[in-house]
Design a protein around this nucleic acid. Sequence first.
DNA 1: TGCATCAGAGTGAACGCTCACATCTGCCCA
DNA 2: TGGGCAGATGTGAGCGTTCACTCTGATGCA
Lengths: 343, 343
Amino acid sequence: MQVEDTAAAARVREPAMTDVARLAGVSHQTVSRVLNGHPNVREQTRLRVRAAIAELGYRPNRAARTLVTGRSQQIGVVAQNSTLYGPTSMLAAFELAAAAQGFAVSVRRVRVLDRSSIAAAVEHHRDQRVAGIVVIAPTASADEALAEIPADVPLVAVDGDPGRGGALVTVDQEEGAFAATRHLLEAGHQTVWHISGPSDWFDAAGRARGWRRALQEAGAEIPPVSSADWSAASGYRAGQMLARMPDVTAVFAANDHLALGAIRALAERGRRVPRDVSIVGFDDVPEAEFFSPPLTTMRPDFDGVATETLSLLLARIEGESGPSLRTLNPTLIPRESVAAPRD
Amino acid sequence: MQVEDTAAAARVREPAMTDVARLAGVSHQTVSRVLNGHPNVREQTRLRVRAAIAELGYRPNRAARTLVTGRSQQIGVVAQNSTLYGPTSMLAAFELAAAAQGFAVSVRRVRVLDRSSIAAAVEHHRDQRVAGIVVIAPTASADEALAEIPADVPLVAVDGDPGRGGALVTVDQEEGAFAATRHLLEAGHQTVWHISGPSDWFDAAGRARGWRRALQEAGAEIPPVSSADWSAASGYRAGQMLARMPDVTAVFAANDHLALGAIRALAERGRRVPRDVSIVGFDDVPEAEFFSPPLTTMRPDFDGVATETLSLLLARIEGESGPSLRTLNPTLIPRESVAAPRD
DNA sequence: TGCATCAGAGTGAACGCTCACATCTGCCCA
DNA sequence: TGGGCAGATGTGAGCGTTCACTCTGATGCA
């Protein structure tokens, strides 16, 4: 009891740098030097300080550090409140990469990617004096918000408008879609239908562009696009339309979940994949391999996006500026959902 | 050019509270009072201060606030580096709920949920002087790490060991599994097989327990458990085994992706769902409705978990302590993957 | 021998806020 | 008329760092 009281009394204030200094018989500045790996400290002194730190269980106060330096070791991320596979994977990879570089990641989710929500989230991060900001900004409205942010804030956009200035990292949607469509054409299909993602997403727009270009280059007919959101449910609805048209033999879906919904709708009308209709998705969700049939799809390199984003952000924190675009090519993962057309 | 130079020079130092005070003709303390909604400020003064804040584009420095109060308005989250649907959904919901209460969320991902990784992540958050910590701790090893954290740190575990003391919010895995298994028994099946999640996860253990209890209460035979991780791939492997056993007519999979893999394996051996084998999953991933066939599953209330977690954490930040357990029941979502057995 | 140089260490002032307390009004009621 | 009281505001210290200096003694070299 007695002991506990003493301990409690001693813990009223957490040990600070001066406490460590006193115990080690040095000045607070020397403790600071040890902590920050400054070279001009004698080995013996360094050890004494470390021992004092350990003995007191001292932990540096980051708030004080942030106050005086004006920069925290935090990166702010703005993302949409969704469980979509792409953004989620990217976010997880980014958090891991940032932690490895000693940065904490503070995430701010927004319900909708409109101008004011994004702006508010960015403002919040700036209030926190984050070292840099990453915005996962796949829509035009999000991009608008970015345009208004002062250029002196280190900021990297992910999945934004490749045409915009500033720093951007993105999967090469167009190339991926081009490859997917080519893959279907090369299997012998006359043309390829497309189930698109929401039209205000750059990802969706890029994929539609790549699809169209592949058809044009092959001189194939360009069928009308089925527009959808990213969900399996909307893929299902698109699939119901496609299933009614006997001349549809190949479909490129803008993501795997759309493809799943479409496969389901086709199956319900007795059109089997790949015997009657071939289909290619995008994302390579871990389950795609176990769809019925296993889905041919494009695999983006989310780890690569995360790594590039971080390195670009760190460069901007160091003061680099100007436009800077990095794109990563997805890989085709061939499975069983593509076959030659019957005729 | 001249103008820009002046602007740049003025922006060398961001405006602080004293600048606002000077412009408004009040003391810095009055500005502080306005900012914190203190009642004893004349309306006229309040307006003058607000005007000055707007004019200068002043933003409060959170680091300074944290330094003096010793607490930041941040909540630290420790989570595993995965894109598993459950934890991801929960995390997204939590971030939104926390933002609504004015808390920022800092996420620290760990590669593996072992004792030292969790401990390091928690330490990191404590360095940042977070107001509270949430650990998504679905395994026994994570739980061990929690036991070592000083009790004065406001901390809530999610998906941890319901038997442990401390604050915990979790889906009632056992009840959910019980309901899923009952559902299959009531359809007329003699017994129900189980594809389990990884055995060191509490979620998996709880689901296995509920399954077993349902069989026991019904006096049904208890078949051996197929153990798996959470992936569709391992569900597929388990399904390959089950497909070889003609007396298997009903399966409860510990999550939807396991179910997907199992369905695939069964289909490859010509056993159709639900005609030959009925199957129930867990999680209700958005795609489950579009599996072939649409999957009957248990839907946990992730929003509810997030809300409960936040409210429990806020209470602990306010000083409450002692054990506190909140469980939420999942809901059965009947679809087409369950039918009566043929015989 | 004298002086520049440098490693190693210390000193004190910021950083921008909140807290505890002090001060100044004006008003009510004895 | 004056004492008390509450509302409105101001004052100064302190939170725990880092930064820009200063100081000290040893070393090198002309």
